[in-house]
């Protein structure tokens, strides 16, 4: 009401929301750095088939020195089969990133649906949904993931599902809380009086107002999904024939890289995980700052 809050009410047209978002994002160096890291990894992963062939990945066809430290032609050394660790890390990005992204998509869809329904129907439907969510939160995630892949079989699909099943609860809780606060706002009451039913209220009014939060939380979910992927593959639940960062770590561990002091074999996939997780976290934080009006200026 007072003139105190007027400076924040800048009158920028909303249809420029996206370009405004980009401009605001561009002012966050940490977010830009994170985005740069992610774009670099994404381009490498997408372009990998152009410069990496079967003869460089197939243990039978490769001809490099075995478990060699970085030398000419092999800038990050080789593994015990003689493959270039650099090429393995680049190839591994493909599956690590795709598992992370698909698991996140599943998490977001499942978590948002449950959260939205639980927040909108505050009667017995909401109670049951929240009890189910609490039940999943109480389940220990690692044993659940292990038993799931035991049932579904080893491979990328079961790891993706295992990650989604164990991580949707956080999204559901978050979305429910935000839904409750949006539902308390007067425009929901107005929509009801105009004749809107439950579906219309949830899809037209609540979802668009919860979306920024979902977006922010999903960037952070990708990071944790990639970590989970590495964990589960390291524990031997992945497809043994495919190359991911987790499987590289597992192979290095089993192949005695630790006792042999083969740091060039262990470090690169670890650092790759670190960089990608850092990238997603930086982008997520920057997006959060840009989208959350309460954080503007901080």
């Amino acid at each position: 009401m007072s003139a105190l809050d007027t400076p924040a009410g800048l009158d920028v047209p909303r249809h420029h929301a996206f370009s405004r978002f980009c401009r605001a994002f561009a002012k966050r160096p940490a977010g830009l750095a994170g985005l740069g890291l992610l774009v670099a990894f994404g381009v490498l992963a997408l372009a990998a088939p152009l410069f990496i062939g079967d003869d460089q990945l197939n243990v039978i066809k490769v001809d490099g020195p075995q478990l060699s430290p970085p030398v000419d032609g092999y800038p990050l050394g080789t593994d015990q089969a003689g493959r270039s660790v650099l090429l393995l890390v680049i190839w591994g990005a493909r599956e690590s990133l795709s598992i992370g992204l698909i698991a996140t998509a599943l998490t977001v869809v499942l978590g948002s649906t449950v959260g939205l329904l639980a927040g909108h129907y505050q009667g017995w439907i909401g109670k049951i949904l929240m009890h189910v969510t609490d039940w999943f939160i109480a389940l220990p995630s690692l044993p659940l993931a292990i038993s799931l892949s035991a049932v579904l079989g080893q491979g990328a699909a079961s790891i993706t599902i295992a990650i989604a099943v164990t991580s949707w609860t956080a999204t559901a809780r978050l979305v429910r809380a935000q839904t409750l606060s949006v539902e308390a706002r007067p425009f929901i009451e107005r929509a009801k009086v105009l004749g809107a039913g439950n579906t219309q209220i949830m899809i037209r009014h609540v979802l668009p107002n919860v979306m920024p939060l979902i977006l922010v939380s999903s960037t952070l979910t990708v990071a944790s999904a990639i970590l989970s992927e590495a964990t589960l593959t390291f524990l031997g639940l992945g497809d043994p024939t495919s190359v991911t960062w987790g499987s590289m770590l597992q192979a290095a561990f089993l192949g005695g890289a630790v006792t042999a002091g083969a740091w060039w074999y262990l470090m690169p996939p670890g650092i790759a995980i670190l960089i990608v997780v850092l990238g997603f976290t930086l982008v997520g934080r920057a997006v959060e700052h840009v989208l959350n009006p309460r954080m503007v200026g901080r």
């Binding site: 007067p186 425009f187 009451e189 107005r190 105009l194 004749g195 037209r204 009014h205 668009p208 107002n209």
Partner: peptide, 19 residues
């Protein structure tokens, strides 16, 4: 509701900010 409509106190809150 085609017959009777409601107008609320706080117009800023009664409009969906994303519409």
């Amino acid at each position: 509701r085609r017959h009777t409509q409601l107008v609320l106190q706080d117009p800023g809150g009664a409009l969906n900010p994303r519409q």
